[in-house]
Nucleic acid binder design. Structure first.
Length: 478
RNA sequence: CGGGAUGUGGCUCAGUUUGGUAGAGCGCUUGGUUUGGGACCAAGAUGCCGCAGGUUCGAAUCCUGUCAUCCCGACCA
């Protein structure tokens, strides 16, 4: 948008962090509470999450998954069973030590993730290959005692879904892991209009206890990367640790192979930082709680309110529509709904009624057009699709413009210091080298992209100069 | 967890240096006039100055602690 029309939000070029905070508060997505890192997700913010949930849940069901509900607490002994897992999570779990006035025999951890609970349950219900696969998912909140917190991006309690599946064979489990990553990528690109890089995490960045971690990485407005969803392949390590066994077709006892995958309310943070502008939030139509808002102009004049309601009613049949009959001036309402990222605004006043038309404005680029009332539904529906496409294309173009290739250490350092964004570079595959890059260059590895073989900017590691194994994306991450 | 900043009506902030009756603008309520990009007039209501201790005749103001928020770093599914 050319002109800044909402004055209450700090420009992102001036202070991106402040801009983000202004947007989450002014758009009424969250409220702070008296507990650090625990936020109230307000109705407008929660409605976005509900829309994300609805879409994803449908995709999960379509691929054969079932929803369950696991307990909030994990006994310490259960959490201890898989060594890498507990080591990874120990620094950030919250513990319950008292029940009423009495000290508990064994302290209980508030789940930071539920692998252990699912395993403990699967042990009881899986006995035969006929019981497999198990394709469970749950929508819940988890707690991780983060030191630095930010709304949606890193909170101590957050809403998410976690899928946990068990399979008879390794191939099937790996396929599941990849399938779910594809579902996440599809969700981000088609529905959230946010392009993502699909790839695999390096060993260093892998989930605690996983054999492979796959990720989707998105680039935000300020050039920082945001890990937006992950899918893990566990092999049968957890199954062994938790003693999950089944009898296969040949009457042999086997450990099943396992996956887990999750996305969280962090996706809302991603939407804000991917599409937002200096007037506030810009919502992708698919998850916008209000897709079209009808604003009467000179509402006190004969027949205006009625006409506005009529338009809203017509629109409600093709999208999520709202009419705002409040006493505020039209200009105030324009600013308000822009701040809240509503994709399409319809203005209807005496002048329009006389000409049997209305004015339609789009949030993504500010364009206004006058439309005959008979074309209303069709125009709005088309606009919602156009807006999604435009948001996606803009974000993709920006990502391409902010993706660089480093061929040697000097180049690498120069880009990392001066050009925010993704950096593609060849890497030797050594974790120690990766650690040095983090310390010296100041960027972390994001992922080894799936399409890596198509690109080959060199034969040697960008840092140590040894023979290169992979193309790796680097960046500064949230 | 380290460094820095900030907490005063719903919001943005002044007042703190130098202790002495709690302020402004916006918002809110009521009535009226308005309405095509954050309208105007009039009359009102709203505060244990984040919380807990201490110093003092007297604390928003000084001291100690604590909690939350923001920023930078460390850490981080």
């Amino acid at each position: 948008m050319d002109d800044k029309k909402v004055k209450e939000i700090t420009d992102m070029e001036v202070d991106f962090a402040k801009w983000y905070t202004d947007v989450v508060l002014k758009a009424e997505l969250i409220g702070y509470t008296s507990v650090k890192g625990c936020m109230v997700i307000r109705p407008y913010g929660y409605a976005i999450w509900e829309n994300i949930q609805k879409i994803l849940d449908g995709m999960f069901k379509q691929t054969g998954h079932e929803n369950v509900c696991m307990p909030l607490f994990i006994p310490e002994s259960l959490l201890q069973k898989e060594k890498d897992h507990i080591q990874g999570f120990a620094p950030e779990v919250a513990w319950v030590t008292m029940g009423g006035e009495e000290k508990l025999e064994e302290r209980l951890c508030v789940r930071p993730t539920s692998e252990t609970l699912f395993c403990d349950h699967y042990k009881n219900i899986v006995h035969s290959y006929r019981d497999l696969p198990k394709l469970y998912n749950q929508w819940c909140s988890v707690v991780r005692w983060e030191k630095t917190t930010r709304p949606f991006l890193r909170s101590r309690e957050f809403l998410w879904q976690e899928g946990h599946t068990l399979h008879a064979t390794e191939e099937e489990a790996v396929k599941e892991t990849r399938q779910m990553l594809d579902i996440y990528a599809n969700m981000c690109e088609e529905y959230l209009a946010m392009p993502v890089i699909k790839g695999e995490k390096t060993e260093k960045e892998r989930f605690a206890g996983a054999k492979q971690t796959f990720t989707i990485e998105a680039l935000m407005h300020d050039g920082k990367a945001l890990q937006s969803g992950t899918s893990h392949y566990f092999g049968n390590g957890f199954a062994k640790a938790f003693d999950i066994q089944f009898t296969d077709k040949d009457n042999k006892l086997q450990n099943p192979f396992q996956t887990s995958w999750g996305v969280s309310t962090r996706l809302i943070g991603a939407i804000i930082m991917c599409h937002g502008d200096n007037s506030g939030l810009v919502l992708p139509p698919a998850v916008a709680p209000i897709q079209a808002v009808v604003i009467p102009v000179a509402a006190h004049k004969e027949g205006v309110k009625e006409k506005a309601c009529e338009l809203c009613e017509r629109l409600s049949k093709v999208c999520r529509a709202k009419v705002d009959l409040s006493e505020q001036s039209p200009g105030w309402k324009y600013a308000e709904y822009e701040m809240k990222g509503v994709p399409v605004r319809i203005e209807i006043g005496p002048r329009d009624i006389e000409n049997n038309c209305c004015v339609i404005a789009r949030r993504d680029n500010g364009e206004k057009q006058t439309v005959q009332l008979c074309d209303l539904e069709q125009t709005v529906q088309k606009l919602l699709q156009d807006i999604r496409d435009n948001l996606y294309n803009k974000a993709l173009l920006r990502r391409e413009q902010m993706t660089y290739t480093a061929r040697n250490k000097e180049e690498f350092k120069d880009i990392a210091d001066n050009k925010p964004g993704f950096i593609k570079a060849m890497w030797c595959g050594d974790s120690e080298c990766e650690e040095h890059i983090k310390e010296e260059i100041g960027v972390t590895s994001r992922c080894i992209p799936f399409n890596a073989d198509k690109e080959h900017p060199g034969d040697t590691c960008v840092y140590c100069g040894k023979k290169a194994k992979h193309l790796l994306y680097f960046g500064k991450a949230y």
